[in-house]
């Protein structure tokens, strides 16, 4: 009985991790990619860790697993938020099918400031970046 439960949890975790990989490969935009990896990856590793705790069935393992799961649940959203913020400020273009961009008229690129009112249009333009090309030599 417990064997079946462990294998089911591990299988679900592996499928979720696989879906996170497919999501990061197929999604059109960095923000959509992050939404796939942050959620599916966290849940997949959490299920696998739960299966490991059930398999070993000792007090020390349970504490370790709970510590890892709590740490992942705390840090994965923070990391995704920080990377998304840095990517937006860096000028990574959004997907062309994006419907709403709430920061568009309220963010000034020169000093990274956010304003509640609208600011002049020559200051709001986030520069559209070219894709990073590491083939040329740095100056």
């Amino acid at each position: 009985m417990q064997e079946i439960l462990i294998m089911l949890l591990m299988l679900f975790g592996a499928v979720l991790i696989f879906l996170a990989g497919v999501g990061i490969l197929r999604m059109p935009d960095i923000f959509l990619r992050m939404s796939a990896t942050a959620k599916a990856g966290t849940l997949g590793v959490g299920l696998i860790l739960t299966a490991a705790a059930l398999h070993f069935n000792e007090f020390g393992i349970y504490t370790r697993v709970v510590a890892i799961i709590c740490f992942i649940l705390l840090t994965a959203p923070i990391a995704a938020h920080i990377i998304g913020r840095a990517a937006y400020f860096d000028g990574v273009p959004l997907w062309e099918g994006t419907i709403q961009d709430d920061l568009k008229k309220h963010y000034r690129i020169s000093d990274h400031a956010l304003y509640s009112g609208e600011i002049p249009p020559e200051e709001i333009l986030v520069p559209q970046k070219e894709a990073d090309d590491f083939s040329e030599e740095p100056e």
Partner: peptide, 18 residues
């Protein structure tokens, strides 16, 4: 872009953990 690579590295280490 560079943030794409950072997200991919993040996912790779999570997968390695699993």
């Amino acid at each position: 872009y560079l943030p794409d690579r950072v997200v991919a590295l993040d996912l790779i280490s999570v997968i390695a953990m699993g």
